[in-house]
Design a protein around this nucleic acid. Structure first.
Lengths: 341, 341
DNA sequence: GCAGCGACTGGAAACGATTCCAACTGATGG
DNA sequence: CCATCAGTTGGAATCGTTTCCAGTCGCTGC
């Protein structure tokens, strides 16, 4: 459990050469063949591995990147993290997970903590944004990439998606497949996604995608439990034949609420989600969902980060990932189903 | 995007005192009231934050702990990670996520990489174990806590659970509720969980929990897709009235296969899973599952780690977390259901 | 009045690596 | 035969922090 690590000077001593030569020999440049061989041998005998901390101090580079979100258990963030790790690890970067906390203040504090210099950059997906947070990001001593909201105007690198447009696509899909009265089940409006999705729904309604009216409720949280509670309220309204939920978990809550009322999904009620999560894919019925490309966004953010970390003079850059509607059972119906109504 | 960070010597200069005093004043011990005030003021003016790397080098402590698993997207590991982060973060430790790769060789390499000294310890949950891996863990320069298999005899700290016993509990539950012919849907047998769960099933059968016989198949992986494929094979056997799956994802695959055959769950076929994941809890029907206490195991591992990190002389220690059967819809049936058969 | 003591302070040495710079080695070319 | 030069090498500085070790200062108690 406790072997002791060899240092570079021990390798140097064993090889009988100077510290400087040892470093060069191991690192590659500017050493004779004989020297390299000799040092390599000594290093191997001692089982030498360079110390990450010493090296970081000297090189002013930690080879670590932080990934910060409100809740590392959220499937969407998990997917992003996996993608980010997948991109960064092969380049020798480690990923440090951090939580932003619920408020913009705690998020801003987290960004400020970058002043401790423990990472070369941070990928962050804040639930909410405010001026102080933006300022902290701009003043951060290392590059920060924001996932979730386009911040081009502030000179901040970001990876965004069009979740408003995604909701619009879901509403149009329901309209086109014959649904007439659509309910919207959203999460908290004071979050970036909640606000955008509401905007998307309102726009779709204005555009006439709900000929026979619409209803909207707001759940306390983006979870199944909160979705169930809010969906009960929503389904109490008369004549809804479809529910657009702001994410997959809320959609599943809605399906549970529908079952309680004896409504069949999708025959009596179509339901769509958003985020295209595993949980929705395997659900029964499988869930129609708007993919916001979590994996793709994570990957894009990581690639941006990589560029910024390798070359700090890089300009801030923005990437947009488009939404994609994936139709599955929860919003399908056969012609016969429809005609029975 | 690029403000420059202040160093301790800049603070010292600004305060007009020595480096040593500055450090002491900020860190607390052995400085006069006046000194503390003076230095604090200078530090505040400069927005000083101590450099994590410099401090790590000197203190030989990184305040980082690695969490290593084969797949950071797996819900069970996500739950563990959340718990670990929850315990460690309040104590000032950062969590670095790493992947072990599929093989014991790559896992052992990862453990060996601890020689680079970038973390104060590692919590690892290897899918498979072999002698080399155990040796590497024993020789690691920092404490390692293993989640998944009791390794007391090797002087390694571990957090284990009794998944064999958990399978036994599931089988007995099905037996007691009237099921007579039980199928077992397992994952790869060359993994630690696969092996243990098979052992648990075989033992239960031997103990007479399947009066009218049993069947077992092995899926290629612990996933829904693999579970579906394997469950089709399993359900082709005659007269099964229950399936015990080695985890929740396989169980959901089994339910899909049952649906294909027109079998109702739980009326025609009871299904149980393992791990008590969110996905199983919200599934329809909600999934009876054996909880192995992922959160609890993660928390226990983190607490162990904390002790070991604070005091390297600590003895290796083992913790066992018991399984708990959580009965939900997928294995319920009413008396009437049964009598109809 | 002075020895002794305790509370503070500053200089300097770590920690482990990389890299600048000067010095040394042969070899080459004039 | 000597000046030059490329190729290597070692000494020393550096990154930012903590902490050991003297040294200073002002008090107290005799």
């Amino acid at each position: 459990m406790t072997s002791t690590r060899a240092t570079l000077s021990q390798v140097a001593e064993r090889a009988g050469v100077s510290l400087a030569s040892t470093s060069r020999a191991l690192h590659g440049a500017g050493a004779s063949k004989a020297m390299v061989e000799r040092v390599r041998a000594a290093a191997a005998e001692l089982g030498y591995r360079p110390d990450a901390v010493g090296r970081s101090l000297r090189m002013k580079k930690t080879f670590q990147v932080a990934f910060a979100v409100a809740d590392i258990g959220n499937p969407v963030y998990v997917e992003m993290m996996r993608a980010i790790h997948g991109v960064l690890a092969p380049h020798g970067y480690r990923v440090v997970v951090m939580t932003t906390g619920d408020t913009t203040a705690s998020t801003a504090d987290l960004v400020r903590s970058l002043n401790s210099g423990f990472v070369d950059g941070m990928v962050i997906s804040p639930l909410r944004t405010d001026d102080r947070l933006i300022r902290e990001i701009q003043q951060a001593p290392v590059p920060v990439v924001v996932i979730g909201r386009a911040l081009d105007d502030h000179g901040i690198s970001s990876v965004s998606t069009d979740s408003a447009g995604g909701i619009g696509a879901a509403v149009r899909h329901l309209h086109e497949t014959g649904r007439r009265r659509i309910g919207f089940l959203n999460g908290p409006l004071d979050t970036t996604p909640g606000e955008a999705r509401q905007r998307g729904f309102d726009a779709a309604v204005l555009a006439g995608a709900c000929p026979e009216g619409s209803e909207a409720v707001v759940a306390e949280d983006f979870t199944v439990a909160a979705g169930l509670v809010a969906a009960r309220r929503l389904l109490a309204r008369e004549g809804l034949d479809a529910v657009v939920a702001a994410n997959d978990l809320l959609a599943i809550g809605a399906i549970h609420a529908a079952r309680e009322l004896g409504l069949a999904v999708p025959d009596d009620l179509a339901v769509t989600g958003m985020d295209d999560t595993e949980i929705g894919r395997v659900f029964c019925p499988s869930l129609t969902s708007v993919s916001l490309g979590s994996t793709e966004r994570g990957r894009a953010a990581a690639q941006l980060m990589l560029r910024l970390a390798e070359d700090p003079e890089q300009q801030a850059q923005q990437v947009a990932v488009g939404p994609a509607l994936i139709v599955r059972e929860s919003s399908e119906f056969t012609a016969s189903d429809r005609s029975e109504r």
